[in-house]
Amino acid sequence: MTEQAWKRPALERTKPHRQLAANISLTGSQQSPKASHAMTGAAKGAQLGYEVSEEQMEEGKAQARFHDIPGAASDLFGSGFSDLKGTVSSENFLALSERVMKDTLLWVEFVARSVQWQMPGSKSESNETSKSAEQTAPAGGGGFTTEVSSLQPVEVTFQPHPGAESRSLGVHDLRGLDAESPAITGVEVTRDGDQWRLRIGIGQSQPPGLYTGIVFDREDGAIRGSLSVAVKGG
């Protein structure tokens, strides 16, 4: 053969780039626009954590004391707690539950603190709580306003995911953690220019407790945030 045989071309590289740290900035001076949002989320998360845990703990304790059931723990907790299996008294049972909840709270505090620590300039945004008669309370920020009309004191926590404001949003009914409580229905979501407005109406007979619902995207059904209302009772 006289003609030059075809050969593969020389290549610039023959391996994938597998090290991606180079692509991301691990440190930086620019404050993310999400920072204030993060603060709000974490602080509210911690608060919500206390609410939920305390409420459930109290109810659980009361029930267990009322019925005074020995051995309940092993039955409820299964083999996970081998040290408590067998002769578990209701006292142990309560102690154990309390420990679980306390650890949880410690943990939530840790997260909240670590966020705060990262952002020394930020301050927590207080939740809207009112003990007055019929009221309308705006809350939230960054393109969102929540309006609550309620005769009972309530605390609203609205957590949109980043970018939610540019989507078409809806809110599922807010369900109580107590399955027997009626849901808070008919949360209205309207948009006026750049501003989103969430209207929540809470009836006088709404049992106290925590109600949560998912903020969803009307177009693709994706979850875009969450809305919680703690009804505090008269």
Binding site: S25, S32, K34, A35, H37, G41, A42, G45, V111, S226
Partner: peptide, 13 residues
């Protein structure tokens, strides 16, 4: 959620 928000702020953490 809080942890996620931390993760979303790579410039801060």
């Amino acid at each position: 959620h809080a942890a996620r928000l931390i993760a979303e702020s790579p410039t801060l953490i």
